[in-house]
Design a protein around this nucleic acid. Structure first.
Lengths: 207, 207
DNA sequence: AACCCTACCAAGCATTTGCTTGGTTTCGGG
DNA sequence: CCCGAAACCAAGCAAATGCTTGGTAGGGTT
């Protein structure tokens, strides 16, 4: 069944399906949440995929909600740290915008399940107190993009007549919704996609 | 079962919450499906919103699935008729592209619930035989955009080095995902949004 | 008055859901 | 050989879910 117990060391392997049984189960849950949505994934689905009974999951986790929580929080912490680094950099607005796009597609590449869960279930989860931070992160994300766009307009890098709010929505939507079709290791890499997107965004598709 | 036998008078009112009780209930169901997703909307939710008991819904409809079906089919029939008209027109590729974008945002304006349901639940519903037509419509939609883009490249209206498949995804995603934030009667009209989007898409946001 | 027809209620059934409880297996360290 | 911790099973409970069944209220037609 398991094949987990490594006699030596117990060193963290950081990659793949996770090193502890707990992390394996979390990875499985994340995949299912991303595929079928949080509410449409039952604890029995998760247990079946892991080859155990549903009750056994509660040896590892308090609740189904704890599982999403543990998936989303570290992911967002990591992502927003990168955004902050970009905002604090010395590059011009255009370079920062490109960097933010790149970082986002990188997140889709490396944490597709977390991104998908946030995209599909944030609204629903946000209605519970426990997940109030989701709305905050949303506002924070808006802040990142809007400030970058405003800086771009101010410094003359972007069109002066740009509707910043509308443009923000277009960027946000197009970037994150890519999680629906992008698959790591198939076809274009995330840097390819980011590059192509930045090109369209900045210069359009017209001849 | 069928109804429809209105001898005289009882003219269709076409607008608002629907003229027959049946249409009212369908509108309520559509709103809830769009807000919470198909699977996460219970027949009791719908009945509560309509002020009746859940069992009473089955006087009007065979099943919950029949309700989505009746919402999606007419909507898609109408939408694709418009796409076909655009494809058959004599305009150049750029004008056709703009028209297709406009028609799409118009659909979001006039049938937001149907669009949202299709966006959020098509994957899940598509796994049932009954909703096989959803995948067909998806392919058909792809055909529309890809052929327009290819025509644009061929006739020199669009950049010759354009990745048509990637661009199709960007357009599709950005257009339809707008259903998440666009609200009819609030702020920009759907024509405003379509215009702004076409501008970004064709010419970019750079100065 | 007799009749339908539409719209609904009241009650419930079988299944699914998240989660609980108490017990069992496995395995390395002492 | 015993121990303890981690991982799991077996069984079930209360609530929610889609749907069924048999009945009723009210209006219009004849």
């Amino acid at each position: 069944m398991s094949a987990a117990s490594t006699p030596e060391s117990e060193e963290p392997r950081t990659s793949g399906e996770g090193r502890t049984r707990r992390e394996q189960l979390l990875a499985i849950a994340g995949r299912l949440f991303a595929e079928k949505g949080f509410r449409n994934t039952t604890v029995r689905d998760i247990a079946d995929a892991a080859g155990i009974l549903s009750g056994s999951l509660y040896h590892h986790f308090d609740s189904k909600e704890s599982m999403v929580d543990e998936l989303l929080v570290p992911f967002q912490t990591e992502l927003f740290a990168k955004y902050d680094a970009i905002l604090a950099s010395e590059d011009d607005a255009r370079a920062k915008l490109e960097a933010a796009v790149r970082v986002s597609f990188e997140a889709i590449d490396q944490h597709p399940h977390e991104v998908a869960i946030f995209q599909n279930d944030a609204d629903h989860l946000g209605s519970f107190e426990r997940f109030g931070y989701l709305a905050e992160r949303n506002a924070q994300s808006r802040q990142v993009w809007v400030s970058l766009l405003e800086e771009g307009v101010r410094t003359g890098v972007l069109r002066p007549d740009l509707d910043v709010t509308l443009t923000y929505r277009f960027i946000r939507d197009t970037v994150w919704v890519a999680v629906r079709w992008y698959r790591a290791g198939k076809g274009l890499t995330h840097t390819d996609v980011a590059e192509a997107y930045v090109r369209i965004l900045l210069d359009g598709i017209a001849a």
